[in-house]
Design a binder for these strands. Structure first.
Lengths: 386, 386
DNA sequence: GCGAGATAAATAGTTTTCTTAAGTATTGTG
DNA sequence: CACAATACTTAAGAAAACTATTTATCTCGC
C-alpha cells in the first residue's frame, strides 16, 4: 500500500474523528477496496478499532457502516517533553487529543547522564507493555532525521549528546525526536481539526513558530525553520542566547517581557504573576505596544512569506489581558498582505504537546511499522536496540 | 509513467546539461527501462533529442551512451513578461538558459484591450509554427491555477481581467501564468544549476521573493508567498501601493531609493544613473545603511522561517557599487540563525526570466501533454480554444 | 414478517507502473 | 579476435490501485 494513501487516510480520520471505510474512501477519492485494505492493516496492528455507533439519528438508508476511530484503549507511545526548566513524561494512547496532562514531571538537570537517570526513575512508573515507541520534543535546532540537537541556546548540554541513544537505554523501542514548535502545531491540528493551514507562534521561555502547509507540517531540507524568535528587531540591542543581537526572543519571551517590565518600573513586582496583574490593570503600556508591534511585524512577515492567513498563538501571551492578543492581531493584520484581499485570523490556543507528540509518533514510528523495509523504517532500526 | 519520475528526470537533465539514459537512471535511482521509456516519450514529442557527443576524452570502457539534451533547435514557447512599464515577448526554445533577450518590447498600456492589440501586433513578428504554448509572468498576487490576477498594486488593470483569455485571442494554444519572482527563481535554477535551495530576492519597481525548496519552487495553497516587499518596517511611515503603510517596498524599490536620495540631497540628480554615480562616489551613506538593514532583517527573517541559507539577489541592487551587496550580505548574516551553525551565502545574479518562463512552460504545459487526461491537463483545455 | 431499495463491505479480475532478469549492441583491450 | 565493460532493449513479474461484481445488512412500505 502506498504510504501516501495511508497518511491521507489517517489525516482524514483525524479530521472526522470517526468514519466508516466507505466515508473515508469517498472523501479521499479512493476506491473502497483500497481504503478497506488500508483500514484492515491498521486494525490488525491495533492503530484503529471498530466500534458500535449508538445510532440516535441514523436517518440513512442502507447497510450502516462500521465506524472506525483511533484505538485509544491503551497507551502506545511514551511522550517526553524536554523543556528548558522542566521535563515531562507520559504514556499516551493514539488518538489522545486532550490538553496536556503529564504523569511525571521533574526539573531538567544540566547534564545528559543526570537526565538519563531521572528518566530511568520515571520509566518505572509508566506502563511498559505494548509500547510502540518513544517520542520526545526538544527546543532548539533539531535534526529530526538523525536525532541530534544541533543548537540549543537555552539548553546547551543537549547539543552534542545523542538523545535517542540516552532514551534508548531506558526504553528499547523506536525513538523519534521532534522540534518543539512542530509538535505544538501538529497537536493543535489534532485537537482542532480544520482543513485550513496556519502558522503556530509560541511564546514562552523562547519564541518559535511552525507552519502547517497543505495539511502537513512544513519541513525544509535544512534542520531549521519557523525561527521567529531569532530574527532581529530594528533598534533592539539586547544580546541573545543564540549569539546574535536584537533577536525578537529577547523582547517577547517571558524573561524578555519581565526585563522590559522591570526596566520601566524599577520598584514593581517583576515576577510573571506580578506582570500579568500589572497589565490587567494598566492595559497596554507604550513599551509593550512597541514590543507587540515588533512581534507582529515578524509574524506578518512569516505569513507573507509562507502564504498563510491564520495564526494560532500559544503560550504566555495568552495568559495576559485579552487586549494584548487583540492588539497583536490588529498589528499582524496591518502587516499582512493577505489582509488586503481577505481575512486574517489570529486566535489563542492552549499548548497540546502530547497530541503533537502522538501525531509525530504515528507518522514516524507507527506507519513505518506497516510499511515494510522502506526508507524511514531503516532509520528507526538504528535506535531499536540501544 | 508517473508524472513524478518524469519531472525528476527532466530536473536532473537540466542539472547535468546532458546525460545518457543510463546516467539518468542511476542518478535518480530508477531502473534503466523506466528511464528509457520516459526518455522515449520525450524524444517523440520533441522535448529532448539525442546528439553525438564529440568524444574528446571518453576514457570509459564499454558502449558509449547516447547523449540527451533539451531539443532547442526550434522555438516552442511564447514567453511574455508583463512588466509594470514594459511588456516583452519572445519565442523561446526549451533548454534556453541564456540571459534575457527579448524579440519584441513595447510600453505596457493601461487597459486590457490596448494590451491585447499591442500583443496582437507582436504576434505577427513571432514564429507561429510548432508552438506548444504561451507562458506569461505577471507582477502582483497571481492565482496560477485559475490564471487570474488577484491584486497588483503597480498594475491595477490586470486585476479583474482574465489574462489567459486575452492571450488566447492571439495564440490559440495552452497558456500558463506565473508569478514574476517565481519565474526568476526557476530561471536562476535553470541557468546556474545546483542542488542547493535558495531564496531569490528581486529588487526593481517592486520588491519580491521566491524560494526554491527541495529543488522545487515553494507554492502554498494560498496564491501568495514570498512577499518580502509588503512586510512593514518599524518606523517607516511611507504609504504603499498595496494600501498598507511602511512596507519595505517603499524604501528599497528603485522609486523608494530615489525618493530617499532626493530627500537627503535636494539638489542632486535624482535619477537612477545619478543615484548609482552618487553611491559609487560616496559609498554607503547613513540612510542607505538603514534601508539595507531593514531589507536584510526581512530577508533574514525569510531565511529563518523557510530554513534556507542561500540568497540570490537580482535587480537594481546589483547595479549599485558592490559594497552595497556586501553590506546587505553582512546584515543578512547577522540576522540569520543558520549563520550560528554554518555559512550563509548571498550572491548577485542577472534576471533570467525567459529561462524561468520556459521552465514553467515545461512543467505546466509540456509535461501534461504526455500525461494523458489527468488533473493539470484539464485546466489547460479551458484556455485552449479561446 | 417480507420483499424492495439502498448502502457498506468483501472479492475477483484488470490496469498501470515500475522492477528484475535476461538478451543484444557497441566500444576498448590483450 | 575473444573478452570485459557498459548502454540500451525486451520480456516477464510484482505491487498497488482501479472497476465490476457479489454478499451483507439496514430501512421502508406493505
Amino acid at each position: 500500500m502506498g504510504q501516501w494513501n495511508k497518511r491521507a487516510l489517517l489525516a482524514r480520520l483525524q479530521l472526522l474523528g470517526s468514519a466508516s471505510r466507505a466515508e473515508l474512501a469517498k472523501s479521499l477519492g479512493l476506491s473502497q477496496p483500497t481504503a478497506g485494505k488500508i483500514v484492515d492493516e491498521m486494525l490488525e496492528i491495533g492503530l484503529l478499532r471498530e466500534f458500535d455507533e449508538d445510532r440516535r439519528q441514523t436517518a440513512t438508508l442502507g447497510r450502516p457502516g462500521r465506524m472506525l476511530r483511533f484505538d485509544n484503549r491503551r497507551p502506545r507511545l511514551v511522550t517526553i517533553q524536554l523543556g528548558v526548566t522542566e521535563t515531562s513524561v507520559s504514556a499516551a494512547a493514539v488518538g489522545a487529543i486532550g490538553e496536556d496532562d503529564w504523569q511525571i514531571q521533574f526539573a531538567t538537570p544540566s547534564a545528559p547522564a543526570k537526565w538519563r537517570s531521572a528518566l530511568g526513575k520515571a520509566a518505572g512508573r509508566i506502563v511498559g507493555k505494548g509500547l510502540w515507541g518513544v517520542v520526545a520534543s526538544v527546543p532548539g535546532v533539531v535534526d529530526e532525521n538523525n536525532g541530534t540537537v544541533l543548537f540549543s541556546p537555552n539548553l546547551h548540554w543537549t547539543e552534542g549528546s545523542v538523545l535517542p541513544g540516552l532514551i534508548g537505554q531506558i526504553w528499547s523501542a523506536p525513538i523519534a525526536l521532534v522540534q518543539e514548535e512542530r509538535a505544538l502545531a501538529l497537536g493543535h491540528q489534532a485537537a482542532a481539526p480544520t482543513q485550513e493551514d496556519f502558522l503556530l507562534a509560541d511564546f514562552g521561555e523562547g519564541v518559535g513558530g511552525a507552519a502547517m502547509i497543505g495539511g502537513k507540517p512544513f519541513v525544509p531540507p535544512l534542520p531549521i525553520s519557523g525561527e521567529l524568535g531569532h530574527t532581529p528587531v530594528l533598534g533592539n540591542k539586547r544580546p541573545c542566547g543564540c549569539g546574535g543581537v536584537g533577536c525578537l526572543e529577547t523582547l517577547v519571551s517571558t524573561s524578555g517581557l519581565l526585563r522590559s517590565f522591570a526596566a520601566s518600573r524599577p520598584r514593581a513586582d517583576a515576577t510573571w504573576p506580578g506582570f500579568v496583574r500589572f497589565i490587567a490593570g494598566q492595559g497596554i503600556v507604550p513599551w509593550l505596544a512597541d514590543t507587540l508591534e515588533s512581534a507582529a511585524g515578524i509574524i506578518a512577515g512569516a505569513l507573507n512569506v509562507w502564504g498563510l492567513r491564520r495564526v494560532v498563538v500559544t503560550g504566555c501571551l495568552g495568559e495576559l489581558h485579552p487586549g494584548v492578543l487583540r492588539y497583536l492581531a490588529a498589528a499582524i493584520e496591518r502587516g499582512s498582505l493577505w489582509a488586503r484581499l481577505g481575512r486574517v485570523e489570529v486566535e489563542s490556543a492552549p499548548r497540546r504537546r502530547t497530541a503533537g507528540l502522538v501525531a509525530t509518533g504515528i507518522e514516524r514510528l507507527v506507519l513505518p511499522m506497516i510499511e515494510g523495509e522502506s526508507g524511514t523504517a531503516n532509520l528507526i532500526k538504528k535506535y531499536e536496540h540501544r
